[in-house]
Design a binder for these strands. Structure first.
Length: 254
DNA sequence: ATGGCTTACAACGTAAGA
């Protein structure tokens, strides 16, 4: 089984990339973020033709999360339970024995803003939801765009990013609090190349110069992590024409 | 350098992302 996550920055713009990449690496389940499309305009047909079963929680213009599966998906939640969120940022599904939570964590914009407070509150509510979910399921994956670089080694230039969202201590503490539930950052369970990132700014040739951040993650419960044999960031589609600014992350499960 | 790209929007500049 292969579990993959990819912030596509508009599914309608990136549909050909999603189809080409998934045909190439054949994930069992693919979690997408920033679909940026209402459910009515979702490109369901193209995905169905490619053999995907799909669940989508979308809204016009912003946010939006989808889960693509090679087999049946049972909906567990299409928004963050107990949070009253109007933004479509969470989609939890069950595929076989595995519960998968697809998240698009708020960006936070800038420290001290309402959006920053919303981000920290959202992460608190996510923590509470995952605590419950982990009580109900042994095999859990929480995957998506967390908009948090957990450590300085996940940042191309920590000094330049100091004082910014994505690296601030309260955000990093919230990330560690998720790990405190018993989840592990599956990427770091394996030896990885130095300067591994999952997002690069479109501006200033960020990708070519590898000026990036590792902000897309696959967290796993102990039972699932024990079956995980490999996790990697596939930078290839980031070099394609008109790419998403994020690269997909994929975990291989025994 | 409060930007440098890219996306969406009943848009033709603005908001937002990271």
């Amino acid at each position: 089984m292969k579990l993959a996550t990819w912030n596509v920055n508009s599914l309608r713009v990136r549909i050909e990339h999603v189809l080409a990449w998934s045909a190439q690496v054949r994930p069992t389940l693919l979690a997408l973020q920033e679909t940026k499309v209402a459910d009515e305009a979702f490109p369901a047909e193209a995905l169905a033709e490619a053999g995907w079963q799909v669940l989508h929680a979308g809204q016009p213009a912003y946010n939006g999360v989808a889960v693509l599966g090679t087999g049946p998906l049972e909906l567990l939640a299409d928004s963050l339970p107990g949070f009253g969120d109007e933004q479509k940022r969470l989609l939890a599904v069950r595929m076989g024995e595995v519960a998968i939570v697809n998240v698009y964590v708020p960006n936070g914009q800038a420290i001290g803003t309402d959006k920053y407070r919303y981000k920290l509150e959202w992460l608190d509510a996510l923590n509470a939801y995952l605590r419950t979910l982990l009580g109900d399921h042994e095999q859990v994956a929480v995957m998506g765009d967390f908009n948090i670089a957990p450590e300085d080694r996940d940042v191309h230039d920590p000094a330049a990013w100091e004082g910014s969202v994505l690296v601030s201590e309260p955000e990093r503490q919230a990330f560690r609090d998720l790990l405190g539930l018993g989840l592990s950052d599956s990427f770091r369970r394996f030896e990885q190349p130095e300067q591994s990132y999952s997002w690069w700014d479109y501006r200033q040739a960020g990708f070519r110069r590898n000026r990036g951040l590792r902000i897309d993650h696959i967290l796993m419960s102990p039972a699932l992590a024990g079956r995980c044999r490999k996790v990697h960031i596939d930078t290839e589609p980031r070099a394609w024409q008109r790419p998403s600014d994020h690269a997909p992350v994929m975990a291989e499960i025994e």
